[in-house]
């Protein structure tokens, strides 16, 4: 099994677990999903929530006042008569804001969900380094690559969270930083569930203070995804994502949409054909050779003590990237 197939299995397994854990196992959400008035659900969290201990969060300078906890958002008709995102504050899904009274098993489940979402997001950009660096002759199995990937992801997120030298000002600065690139881990991750258009496939997203990077599932004619619905409702689901990105909870300026190149060509061409009309831009893929040759990234690679780490590579070649102003 090559890395792409292995990756796909890896994502699917985690996705099934996420849907079950976050959406299906909750009676209230099950009701919401069944309601025809609800067009979408979004679940997001800041990575600080990965720190189990509230005292440690405070010690690390994150505070509690200016950090949002994880939250469900619902896309439905508001009182003004139009579809809008709003936070759902129902007790059954209001997450563990007070960790001191939260059951530790439940907390562990939340932490597991966080990591699943982060890894399913970052995993989409994982590639075998030999793909674009043929000189790398290390032959590493897909299983090994995925293990390396998990370790690498935990390390990157951990380095953001565990830097005790950061003062509050720096933390605030980090929280406001703006990353145009898919490469960097973000301070917030989310899943978006739009069953009317994408059936049971989740959209993964990460965001900072400016960009919301949203990854669409592979959309093709032979998949379970409602292909015609996606094509015919392009404006509706795109508007839904634009509203989410610009909503007061996110308040971001740009939506970046990652469309898998294995998706149906007709969908891709339809999106591109209309892109000027809906104020979108095509963003070039990053030049991986340039990225690899940059001193900073080169050091990252060469500083790895384990040669197997050279097998890990991230790139965006699998995606056509569109950007929309919000």
């Amino acid at each position: 099994m090559d890395i792409e197939n292995y990756k796909s299995d890896y994502i699917n397994k985690k996705e099934s677990r996420l849907i079950n854990s976050l959406l299906i196992s909750n009676e209230y959400l099950k009701e919401i999903i069944a309601s025809s008035d609800i067009k979408g659900i979004s679940y997001n969290f800041p990575i600080q929530n990965l720190i189990k201990n509230k005292n440690k969060r405070l010690h690390n300078g994150y505070g509690l006042d200016n950090i949002d906890d994880d939250q469900f958002f619902i896309y439905s008709l508001n009182t003004s008569g139009f579809l809008d995102w709003h936070a759902d504050m129902h007790d059954d899904i209001t997450p563990h804001n007070d960790r001191s009274v939260t059951d530790s098993t439940e907390l562990d489940q939340h932490i597991q969900n966080y990591w699943d979402i982060i890894q399913n997001t970052e995993c989409q950009f994982l590639s075998n380094s030999q793909h674009f660096n043929p000189e790398n002759t290390i032959n590493v199995s897909p299983q090994k690559i995925m293990k390396l990937f998990q370790r690498d992801t935990v390390s990157k997120i951990g380095s953001l969270l565990n830097n005790k030298k950061l003062d509050l000002q720096t933390i605030k600065g980090l929280l406001n930083y703006s990353s145009t690139s898919w490469k960097n881990p973000c301070f917030n991750y989310s899943i978006i569930y739009l069953p009317e258009y994408f059936n049971d496939s989740l959209l993964y997203a990460k965001y900072d203070s400016t960009y919301n990077h949203v990854i669409l599932p592979i959309i093709s004619n032979d998949k379970q995804i409602a292909f015609n619905s996606i094509i015919n409702n392009l404006k509706n689901w795109l508007l839904c994502l634009l509203e989410l990105t610009s909503s007061s909870n996110y308040n971001l300026k740009f939506l970046r949409l990652y469309i898998n190149r294995n998706s149906d060509k007709y969908l891709i061409m339809t999106l591109l054909r209309n892109i000027n009309w809906i104020n979108g831009k095509l963003i070039p893929n990053e030049n991986n050779l340039n990225w690899l040759s940059s001193p900073e990234n080169s050091n990252n690679i060469h500083n790895n003590t384990n040669n197997n780490d050279n097998a890990l590579a991230y790139n965006d070649e699998n995606f056509i990237i569109l950007e929309f102003e919000c």
Binding site: F82, K235, L242, W277, N279, C326
Partner: peptide
């Protein structure tokens, strides 16, 4: 723009642009 999010409309209001198209009731 035929695909206007709320933020777009707010901005048009802020800068005084009045002329605008629509094609659905949500808008």
């Amino acid at each position: 723009n035929p695909c206007k999010a709320s933020s777009f409309i707010k901005h048009a209001s802020e800068v005084g642009v009045l002329k605008s198209t629509f094609d659905n009731s949500d808008e």
